[in-house]
């Protein structure tokens, strides 16, 4: 009697396990399908762009020529240089500010309503449409600060745009460090700054870097704020070189130079009547996606390497 009951129970349990395993399996299939939808869409788009743009992608002159009215001799050079210089300014302005703000918020700020307010604001800022930053920058940088429609204006605008991303990523990364690490450092007599510099920043560096690079990858594809502040479409010369051969070896004139960037160049080609320009646009699209992929790949690799080096 007892035995029968037990067998019955056991069978019920087995059936239940089977059912749950089936559920697991079904969920993993659904999850995989969801992943595929995103992946296949991106891949189709990317392959389509490559197929359309490959004649241009393979020709070296595409990367060394200035824009032109003839699709065959139009190249990406001014857009490539423009994008790189703008990104440099974005990096130099957003990263130190963002990382320091995050360290302050996590390690120094007292937990009161004011820091709560800042926190809510920062998270909100991350969701503000980029065109709003463009309008702000047009008023602030271009007219009030009189920086003109220049590389420095564009760089600072995109810097503002990715600042919340950098702050949020840095905070997340700092938060993942166990409190025990800090306590251990304090226990051997470290000051707050020593704890922050020698432990907190070092251990969270991988995460910070990921946030920074993801922010930069977002910035490089932005068009709306850059158009708002007045990027050019045709510019067939390069800004003055940042490095010179004579003392003081650094030249800051490039900051006030006009510029164009990759997405604007692509957009301009796409709106041309002639089909040949659409090939150029597709090739420019491939370059933008590649740059973004490389940056993201680099972020993942750095994070992995940093994680491996941390031994607690």
């Amino acid at each position: 009697m007892m035995n029968k009951q037990q067998t019955k129970n056991l069978n019920e349990v087995r059936a239940m396990i089977q059912r749950h395993k089936l559920n697991d399996y079904i969920f993993s299939i659904i999850g995989l399908l969801c992943l595929m939808v995103g992946l296949i869409t991106l891949l189709t788009l990317f392959i389509d762009l490559i197929l359309q743009g490959y004649p241009k992608l393979l020709s070296l002159s595409f990367y060394t020529d200035f824009p032109s009215r003839r699709a065959s001799s139009a190249g990406l050079l001014s857009a490539l240089v423009g994008s790189s210089l703008v990104m440099l300014v974005t990096f130099l302005s957003a990263v130190p500010m963002g990382v320091m703000a995050a360290i302050y918020l996590e390690e120094y700020a007292p937990k009161n309503w004011f820091s709560d307010l800042i926190e809510i604001n920062v998270s909100n800022l991350a969701a503000v449409p980029s065109i709003i930053y463009g309008l702000l920058a047009l008023g602030l940088f271009v007219y009030i600060l009189d920086l003109g429609q220049s590389i420095v204006t564009a760089g600072l605008t995109l810097g503002l745009l990715i600042l919340p991303v950098v702050i949020v990523a840095t905070r997340e990364s700092i938060r993942s460090i166990p409190i025990a690490i800090r306590e251990a450092a304090y226990a051997v007599g470290a000051t707050k700054w020593q704890v922050v510099y020698d432990h907190v920043i070092k251990y969270s560096f991988g995460g910070i870097l990921t946030g920074v690079i993801i922010g930069m990858a977002r910035a490089i594809g932005e068009t709306a704020p850059i158009i708002t502040i007045g990027a050019l479409t045709f510019i067939a010369f390069l800004p003055p070189s940042p490095v010179t051969t004579t003392a003081p070896f650094l030249n800051f004139e490039w900051l006030s130079s006009g510029f164009t960037v990759l997405p604007i160049q692509m957009f301009s080609w796409l709106s041309r009547p002639s089909e040949a320009f659409h090939v150029n646009a597709a090739a420019a699209g491939v370059i933008i996606i590649l740059v973004t992929l490389i940056m993201n790949g680099f972020a993942i690799r750095m994070r992995y390497k940093m994680r491996k080096n941390i031994k607690w």
Binding site: P96, G148, F252, L255, S256
Partner: peptide, 22 residues
Amino acid sequence: SIAGLVASLFALPTMAVAAEKI
């Protein structure tokens, strides 16, 4: 030095408005 670099980013472009012919 980082702080100085950032500060120079803000300060320099205004004085470097080129007299170049464009």
